[in-house]
């Protein structure tokens, strides 16, 4: 591949990114996109960040985490405290959210990532519940009542560029030397270790990066919905995120994006049949797992979109299970 070509591709993708942003912003200003669609776009955006970041941990590095909502809640609380109690601008809130979630990721990751498979899943689930219970009992963050009147800073611009940043950073991480080490761990941890990959380091690294972005998603969430409480980040929330990842396809960033979009649409449709909503949701989930166990886009990813390809078959090893 020659340099000229992928420069053009980069320009093209940049163009599409900017175009989409302006298009939605314009439609929003003109009132074609009303506040309901905007709200759903924001929810989709937050879910994309959550799913892509969990995909890095679970889909690419193969570490089964059921505690992703805990990092989101740490980020949400950090940003809420920064913007409400300390009256800082939103960017400080986002930074605090990212840093505190990443620190939590390191603290939780170092001991638990020695575990494998289901055991790791349970340990992370346990950590998630511990975070929630602490939130319920600490009066500084409002206990069960949660934090109120958080300023609404999150808007289309913030969401859009945070989603783009998350996708690009995680995609580039995966395509880097470090990313390939992570994928090697997923494929065969023992072999990876034998080949000289520092497995603990890379597992904790992937976990921390995932936690960091989950924290950012939490900040966006807190500063959009005005109000947070510990029960919004329970273990069902972690499961919801995992469902997006698996539904879209493990180890496929594009899959996570598609999963977040499709599941939000399904959820919006099902609002009209409240009594049977969860039953239908369960059936859809089940059918996807049976007929497409690799998810919607299990073996298909950004790299397959020629638009984003950087060249060659360097990453041919990245495939969903």
């Amino acid at each position: 591949m020659n340099t000229n070509l992928f420069r053009r591709r980069n320009i093209l993708s940049l163009f599409i990114i900017v175009f989409l942003y302006i298009a939605v912003q314009l439609m929003s200003n003109l009132g074609i996109i009303d506040s309901y669609i905007m709200l759903n776009l924001i929810i989709i955006g937050i879910n994309i960040i959550l799913a892509v970041s969990l995909n890095l941990i679970t889909g690419f590095t193969g570490q089964f985490s059921l505690g992703h909502a805990a990092f989101m809640s740490i980020g949400a609380y950090a940003s809420a405290i920064a913007t409400t109690k300390l009256e800082q601008p939103f960017i400080v809130g986002i930074l605090m959210a990212a840093v505190s979630a990443a620190v939590a990721g390191v603290i939780i990751g170092i001991p638990t990532l020695r575990l494998k498979g289901d055991y790791l899943a349970i340990a992370t689930l346990g950590f998630g519940e511990i975070v929630r219970i602490i939130g319920l009992n600490v009066d500084y963050v409002g206990g069960a009542t949660g934090l109120n009147d958080i300023p609404q800073y999150t808007n289309w611009t913030w969401i859009y560029f945070m989603v783009i940043a998350t996708v690009l950073i995680i995609k580039n991480f995966i395509n880097s030397y470090h990313g390939r080490a992570c994928i090697a761990i997923k494929e065969d941890e023992i072999a990876a270790e034998a080949m000289g990959v520092n497995t603990t380091y890379y597992k904790v690294l992937a976990f921390t990066i995932g936690a960091l972005f989950a924290g950012i998603a939490g900040a966006l969430y807190a500063n959009y919905f005005y109000f947070i409480k510990p029960d919004s980040f329970g273990f069902m929330k972690s499961i919801d995120i995992l469902v997006i990842v698996v539904f879209g396809g493990m180890g496929s960033i594009l899959g996570s994006i598609a999963g977040a979009v499709v599941l939000s649409i399904i959820s919006a449709f099902l609002q009209s049949i409240p009594e049977l909503r969860m039953v239908v949701y369960a059936v859809i989930l089940f059918l996807i797992m049976v007929y497409r166990p690799n998810g919607l886009l299990g073996k298909f990813d950004l790299k397959d979109l020629k638009l984003f390809r950087k060249g060659g078959k360097v990453n041919a090893g990245i495939k969903g299970e």
Partner: peptide, 8 residues
């Protein structure tokens, strides 16, 4: 409409 007992 059902809100699933959830803030968002």
């Amino acid at each position: 409409v059902d809100n699933k007992s959830d803030n968002a």
